[in-house]
């Protein structure tokens, strides 16, 4: 089972849910926890895994041979990402904008452009207790988060039928979240019961629908705010799978990097039940809409 934890709004408790779900399940089945919030990865603050393998995430960017370039500008014209400009007949590249499509290399009539590697991030594989982890970190100043997310996803076992692979995604609904959520078995949406939480939840639901993923909601900090998230879920027929009450004790535990299910063992039952209902919904979805 491969599930993604997403949210729309930031700071709703994605990482808390991912980490504590992993902790709850670790005695029962093999657990893999992938930190795909590569802009601000946080899982390692709560589980401090021993890193046993790290790999640079590389991309390729153009390298232009000034002797061969005649300044025709075809590369700059072709580039859809504004990563090459011709200034006073000379090409200037902006490697941080390059998407590595190789278009410039193909269109250059003088063969002046070759590809050269560039690092955009890092993937670190590790273990914490029996949990296998992988964390992606986007290099500061690099905008290409989805590529690093893909690299983290690629560390997951290919056949994960009897395992729990849990993906912690970044906030929002754009390409980086798509990379984290696509082709998973279930999308768990963590929100808080406030108007901001509701607004961003509706966006996250649209994303899950667009990707054809079965989805359900976790309401964190229940008791704070208003009832609108509950009303929305009820009307839109989206299951609320778990609530975590607002409690300054929980907030304090999170603040110093503590693990909720260890400090408050009564929460384990909620996470166990959460896993059961996720499986139930994911399997029902598979029966109803088998993957082609």
């Amino acid at each position: 089972m491969l599930i993604t934890i997403a949210s729309g709004k930031g700071g709703t408790g994605k990482t808390t849910v991912a980490v504590n779900l992993a902790l709850t399940l670790k005695e029962l089945l093999p657990v893999v926890l992938l930190d795909c919030d590569v802009e601000e990865p946080n899982v390692h603050l709560f589980l401090q895994p021993v890193v046993n393998e790290s790999e640079k995430v590389m991309t390729t960017v153009p390298k232009i041979d000034g002797n061969k370039c005649d300044g025709c500008g075809k590369c700059s014209e072709f580039c859809a990402f504004n990563a090459i400009a011709i200034v006073k007949g000379k090409p200037i590249t902006f490697p941080e904008l390059c998407h590595s499509c190789r278009g410039c290399t193909l269109v250059c009539p003088t063969g002046a452009i070759t590809e050269t590697p560039r690092q955009i991030g890092l993937v670190e594989k590790g273990t914490w207790s029996v949990i296998k982890t992988a964390k992606g970190t986007l290099k500061i100043g690099s905008p290409l988060a989805p590529m690093v997310v893909d690299a983290v996803r690629n560390t997951a076992p290919l056949h994960h039928g009897d395992q729990a692979v849990i993906i912690d995604a970044s906030p929002g609904t754009s390409c980086a979240v798509v990379a984290a959520a696509k082709d998973t078995d279930f999308c768990l949406l963590v929100t808080e019961p406030t108007p901001f939480g509701l607004n961003d939840l509706t966006l996250a639901v649209e994303l899950a629908k667009k990707l054809g993923l079965p989805h359900g909601v976790v309401i964190n900090r229940a008791g704070l705010g208003d009832h609108s998230v509950y009303d929305y879920c009820h009307e839109a027929d989206i299951p609320i799978l778990m609530e975590i009450p607002f409690d300054t004790k929980y907030a304090a535990c999170y603040a110093r990097g503590g693990r909720l299910v260890e400090e408050f063992p009564d929460l384990s039952d909620r996470f166990l039940k959460l896993w059961d209902v996720i499986q139930h919904h994911a399997k029902r979805h598979q029966r109803e809409e088998p993957k082609t």
Partner: peptide, 11 residues
């Protein structure tokens, strides 16, 4: 601004 450090934050 947006959260994170990626493309929209840089912009």
């Amino acid at each position: 601004g947006p959260p994170g450090t990626g493309c929209p934050v840089i912009s």
